[in-house]
């Protein structure tokens, strides 16, 4: 027997979130599943005839290096996404931990954390990556790039989370929990975390954007490991071989369209989620 339910107002359908999630799901699922259906290394040069037009066999044709543009793009999306998610997991974990603990523990600990936050916000990531790229001479492994992005990217998120912790600290229900004898960790875990959670989701997606963008920016100017297919390295090669001038516009337009779709998708997901969450909590 079903319970008689009250006519509940349907939650407002969020268009942004829907569009964003659709785009991201298609790109993520496609780039993660499709590689299982090919045995060819898309980065290997001279696999196919050069400069073939699009056909059933080569959906986007082949480029001046004899690579299949479609498959290269699939691997590029996958690698860029994996890098973005890895970096974002690291940054979200570090910034949440440091931001919350600094906001709640306070005192000397907070001051030290804040000085480091301010410093890491000041240090520009791109030049640091350029120096490191110059020293290891383009042999930058993907892990090194990810590690550096984490080391130099946590501070912005940590700062936001700390300021959230500072305002939450003074709220009634926190005092209530404290007077009831709850320790710092249970308060952070049970009382604070639900509030910070929404920001973490948004911050997580935005950090993916930051990581993909920084690596791609580095690759486009030829200072990342351009042998690995990423959304940046594909453009680096296309520019290097003057794709447009030699009559291969697809080589450069395909990654441009894909990048725009991916970034727009992730951005719409994050702002859409933010709106939805605000509506549900009655904040908006």
């Amino acid at each position: 027997m079903s319970q008689p339910t009250k006519p509940r107002k349907l939650r407002k359908f969020n268009l942004r979130l829907a569009i964003g999630l659709t785009i991201v799901t298609i790109l993520a699922a496609g780039s993660l599943i499709l590689p299982f259906f090919t045995s060819v290394d898309p980065a290997a040069q001279g696999t196919y005839l050069k400069n073939l037009p699009p056909s059933a066999k080569h959906l986007l044709g082949t480029n001046a290096l004899g690579q299949d543009i479609f498959w290269y793009l699939v691997f590029a999306v996958r690698n860029s996404l994996l890098l973005g998610v890895t970096v974002s997991i690291g940054i979200t974990a570090i910034s949440t931990f440091l931001g919350l603990s600094a906001g709640f523990i306070g005192g000397w600990y907070e001051r030290i954390v804040v000085v480091f936050m301010d410093t890491f916000i000041t240090i520009p990531v791109l030049p640091i990556l350029i120096v490191l790229g110059a020293i290891v001479r383009g042999n930058t492994s993907f892990f090194v790039v990810a590690a550096i992005l984490i080391v130099f990217g946590w501070a912005w998120n940590a700062r936001t989370i700390r300021s959230m912790a500072l305002t939450l600290r003074e709220r009634e229900f926190i005092n209530m929990a404290r007077f009831s004898g709850a320790g710092v960790m249970p308060i952070i875990g049970r009382e604070i975390f639900p509030y910070v959670y929404a920001f973490m989701v948004v911050g997580f997606i935005n950090t993916i954007l930051f990581a993909i963008n920084t690596e791609a920016a580095l690759a486009v100017i030829g200072l990342s490991n351009v042998v690995i297919p990423t959304l940046g390295s594909i453009i680096f090669w296309a520019l290097n071989y003057n794709a447009i001038m030699i009559g291969q516009p697809l080589w450069i337009i395909a990654p441009i369209v894909t990048t725009v779709a991916l970034f727009l998708g992730l951005f719409l997901t994050s702002t859409g989620y933010n709106e939805l969450f605000a509506e549900r909590r009655g904040v908006a």
Binding site: I212, A216, I235, I256
Partner: peptide, 18 residues
């Protein structure tokens, strides 16, 4: 604004050049 904001800089630059 929503469409322009998330687009990476190098993509904007390439589109403008093209």
């Amino acid at each position: 604004g929503i469409i322009l904001y998330p687009i990476p800089y190098y993509i904007l630059a390439l589109v403008v050049i093209l």
